[in-house]
Simulated scan of single mutants.
Amino acid sequence: MSRYVVMVDFRLRPGARTAFRTLVDLNARVSAHDEPGCQRFDVVELDGEADRVLLYEIYDDRAAFDAHMKTKHYFAFDAESAEMVASKVVTTGGLVCEGSA
């Protein structure tokens, strides 16, 4: 079975990036450290797009991602960042080829 990939494209309200990054970075670190089903959780800033942040997450399976969505740290991140987010698009899929060794 392939691992479960989640990509989230956040468009932030102007001026929210610093505060948002504090929250999302904590969520990423705690998820990767404390959740056994979370294999990877990257936060990406795009060149020339100050109000856009991407997440790239890999979980063992859909159940591990569903468990992530029920954690205290996820709920805190979601609630505290809600006013900073203008929009978000979530894309999911299965990891079919891993390029790293």
Rank of each mutant, 00 (worst) to 15 (best):
C38G: 04
L23M: 10
V44G: 04
V44R: 01
V5G: 12
M1A: 08
D42M: 06
M84W: 00
V85E: 05
R11I: 01
V85K: 04
D9K: 06
K70A: 15
D51R: 09
A64I: 05
Y59N: 06
F10Q: 05
V85T: 06
D25C: 07
D42F: 05
D47S: 15
E35D: 08
E83W: 06
L12H: 06
A86R: 13
R3S: 07
Y59A: 13
D60Y: 03
R17A: 14
V6W: 01
T92C: 13
S87C: 09
E57M: 03
V6M: 13
D66A: 09
E83Q: 14
D47G: 15
V89P: 00
G94S: 13
E45R: 02
D34P: 02
A76R: 14
G99N: 04
A16V: 04
L55D: 02
C97A: 15
Y59T: 11
T22D: 14
R3I: 01
Y74N: 05
H33Q: 14
E35C: 09
N27M: 02
D78F: 10
D34H: 15
F20C: 07
V89M: 07
Y56T: 08
A67S: 12
G48A: 12
A50W: 03
R40D: 03
A19C: 05
A79H: 09
Y4L: 00
R40H: 11
L54H: 12
A28N: 06
N27I: 03
T92R: 10
L54N: 07
K72H: 11
G15Q: 02
T71R: 12
S2E: 02
D25N: 12
D34G: 15
V8T: 14
T22G: 08
E35Q: 09
A101F: 09
F65A: 00
K88E: 15
R29A: 07
A86C: 11
E80D: 13
D47I: 13
E35G: 00
D66V: 09
S2L: 05
S81T: 15
L55P: 03
A28Y: 02
V8I: 15
R11V: 05
V44M: 13
V24H: 01
R17P: 00
Y74S: 05
D42A: 10
A86T: 12
A28I: 00
G93K: 11
S31L: 03
V89W: 08
S81P: 07
T18G: 03
M7V: 10
L46S: 08
R21V: 05
I58P: 02
G48Y: 04
Y56M: 08
G37E: 00
D9G: 01
P36Q: 11
V5M: 13
T22W: 06
V85M: 03
H33R: 12
G93M: 04
A76M: 11
V8K: 03
C97V: 10
A67Q: 03
R11G: 06
V53I: 14
L26C: 09
T91S: 14
K72C: 04
R62N: 05
R21C: 10
E80H: 06
V53D: 00
G48C: 12
Y74Q: 05
D66Q: 13
R17N: 08
T92A: 13
V90C: 00
A101E: 10
